[in-house]
Nucleic acid binder design. Structure first.
Lengths: 230, 230
DNA sequence: GACGTTTTAGACAATGGTGTCTAATTTTAC
DNA sequence: GTAAAATTAGACACCATTGTCTAAAACGTC
């Protein structure tokens, strides 16, 4: 229960620099090892050695293994969410070619949020440790994947209002867009293989082509009235 | 290295009955515990007690933890593959209503292969232990998910040849069908929640509707020539 | 250079797991 | 009923890991 950290040391602001670097180094190494070995399989010694830090330093910064794990998860979740919404903000608003722009967006999405190290980490850890730490990943579920659906739905609704797409249920369409982007990548991600840029682009093209075929408005040049206005 | 099993016991065929039950019980309990705790987090004691069997019996049947784990994985993989292809054989060949029949098929697929215990087990274990046992899951990858794509592609090509669908790339379409079926379920499966039957049916309907919109043949009743013949 | 803080290596007890062994008991086959 | 096989509980050595502790060393600041 008690730990050396309980006696708050009056550390000068400047001495934080070295400490901060160590903290970061530990966090990074711990993410690596937890991702590779899982919580139970990871040992503090391994983390310390991978962080080029003594074991005691790890215990100084994070009192116990559980605590370190939670800190790592929260760190990765924050980074992943930031990246997610940063990528989301690059969604094409006034596309020149909707298909091309959506495909480019899909590539960014899979590259920055799904196939990167953080994405891999979260998939693995949510699945393997999610039940043991129900509240830990819950906030991520709500603020990350939970929100990306509605956020993407809102963006799709704008395109729909411009007449570039014809969508009846935006939430469903958003989930389907994400699912289609993943369709060709799932085998790779499941087995930890990082797809090449070419594979990413091919997957995105396939996804967007099908998405557009399903949700493209009827080719009403001038004469044909829209078959259905949702 | 050496174990009691090395001195092959000349067991009569009949004495297998009790043994067989124990083996099965151990296998089942081990699957449960490995799935819940992961390989490193699972203890033989816990498995033995969950199987209502002494620890020594576990060691008698499977020499070591590694061995038990591999036996469990192979067992689950076999069951999952059998179920996969059994479900696949119920793919609508001469559909009355293609949309309804495809949706019913999608429900069967998600219910029997994705949302069941074996599906959960394999997702979890492939992801968390796949890198540690590269060859173990490799055969599953080839014979399971690797083949379902091509098998489903073949079935889709039949529907396409009958003029019920218009598909240019059958492999892509097959992957997309699977992805769409999962679109609404991924959040649930990721967090270990088993979807209700109603959710399954809703997800299937959404998936099939979009799939059909993307791949339905042009409504060439009699007059309109097909816009594109792939 | 002196001070306080952080880091380090190493030893340490406590714990929990694996895999082995034994001796007693139960099950099963004939 | 008897003999062989399987099962059981318990003890055991061994090892890895967690988390603590200490004394020495390195570091940064004044």
């Amino acid at each position: 229960m008690k730990s050396p950290n309980d006696t708050v040391p009056k550390m000068s602001v400047h001495s934080q620099r070295g400490q901060c670097a160590k903290r970061l180094s530990i966090l990074e190494a711990a993410a690596e090892v937890f991702c590779r070995q899982g919580f139970a399989g990871a040992s503090i010694d391994e983390i310390a050695s991978e962080a080029c830090v003594s074991r005691q330093t790890v215990y100084n910064h994070y009192r116990e293994k559980d605590n370190l794990f939670m800190a790592v998860v929260e760190d990765v979740m924050d980074r992943a969410n930031a990246m997610l919404f940063s990528t989301l903000s690059s969604f094409p608003e006034n596309p020149e070619s909707l298909e091309d722009d959506l495909a480019a967006f899909a590539v960014r999405l899979s590259h920055n949020c799904i196939c990167n190290q953080d994405g891999k980490f979260l998939r693995k850890l949510v699945l393997s440790e999610g039940e043991r730490y129900p509240h830990l990943f819950e906030s991520w579920r709500q603020h990350g994947p939970g929100k990306i659906g509605t956020a993407l739905a809102a963006l799709l609704s704008r395109l729909s209002r411009k007449g570039l797409l014809q969508i009846d249920d935006f939430d469903v369409a958003a989930r389907q867009f994400l699912a289609l982007v993943n369709a060709d990548l799932q085998m790779s991600t499941l087995f930890g293989v990082t797809p090449t840029q070419a594979e990413l682009e091919s997957a995105a093209r396939n996804a967007v082509r099908t998405f557009m075929r399903a949700y493209a408005p009827p080719p009403a040049q001038t004469n044909a009235p829209a078959l259905r206005t949702a």
